[in-house]
């Protein structure tokens, strides 16, 4: 079999699983889950530094306890080992998302962005019109844009044409754990995609990730399925194996589905006939 490498833009990744950094019970659990996942790209959010926590910092320094704001997520991420993918989660307009992407670029070390422009609070479905606008702006500015989108083949084609580096349709709403809801749309998107196809959001358990990969996704991005599991470290490992298993099954080429049985054992030489 050919070496199975995963390339987005100009970067090669050893793992097809991309994991998040949100919702973990503690940084220690997150660190162990990241390790168990085998992922080499992890997503982070860009947020305002909490200034009120720091107002006391203007007075005499206290040495007893650091203010909560003094602790940084980056204290727990080995940036030599993991590639950081800043997101624009929580942005509701193209303008907010573009500003956030630019800030993420300065805070981090790369010009990559997981682009989210949300259109609805309850479903967290993307506003695809604003998403396309923001994609075009950021591509022009030299960003590697990975847009989170609905599983709509037409929107995916437009994002691809707009210069996105990958297309990232949802399997189901963010954090829902419902699994892949529209298998056939993903099949169609697989056919039209000339850039990496990453299923982003909706995975609940290992079989969901395996299914996404069996359908031909190039990668899977998830956060809640691991961070929210009762044992996030064990779930991270199961996702690593599921993504690998699904990928191998896709490359191996599954048998066609048939309505009736087809015997596995020879029908000749049966005893007593």
């Amino acid at each position: 079999m050919q070496p199975d490498i995963f390339v987005i833009a100009d970067r090669t990744f050893s793992s097809r699983l991309i994991v998040g950094t949100g919702k973990y019970s503690s940084p220690a659990v997150m660190v162990r889950a990241h390790d168990a996942s085998g992922a080499d790209m992890i997503t982070v959010a860009v947020r305002r530094v909490n200034i009120s926590d720091r107002s006391s910092a203007r007075g005499p320094r206290e040495h007893s306890e650091p203010s909560s704001g003094a602790e940084s997520l980056l204290d727990y991420i080995d940036t030599a080992k993991y590639f950081l993918l800043p997101n624009t989660a929580g942005c509701y307009t193209a303008d907010e998302a573009v500003r956030t992407a630019r800030l993420g670029r300065e805070a981090g070390l790369s010009h990559w962005v997981k682009l989210e422009v949300i259109g609805d609070e309850k479903t967290l479905f993307p506003d695809n019109e604003a998403l396309l606008d923001a994609t075009r702006i950021l591509v022009r500015e030299g960003f590697v844009v990975l847009p989170y989108t609905t599983d709509d083949p037409v929107v995916c084609r437009k994002l691809q044409d707009a210069g996105a580096a990958a297309i990232m349709p949802l399997g189901a709403p963010i954090g829902s754990g419902l699994g892949i809801q529209n298998v056939n749309n993903l099949r169609i998107i697989r056919e039209l995609a000339r850039i990496p196809l990453i299923v982003d959001a909706g995975v609940g358990t290992a079989s969901d990730a395996a299914l996404a990969m069996e359908l031909g996704a190039d990668g899977v991005l998830m956060n809640t399925a691991i961070a929210g599991a009762q044992d996030p470290v064990a779930m991270a490992e199961s996702m690593k194996l599921a993504v690998r298993a699904g990928r191998l099954a896709y490359l191996a080429g599954r048998i066609p589905r048939k309505l009736y049985a087809s015997a596995s054992s020879p029908i000749e030489g049966l005893v007593g006939r």
Binding site: T21, A45, V46, L84, G104, A107, A201
Partner: peptide
């Protein structure tokens, strides 16, 4: 002035 940093997210 806006000052931002990285926090956990997906």
């Amino acid at each position: 002035v806006e000052i931002v940093n990285f926090v956990g997210g997906g």
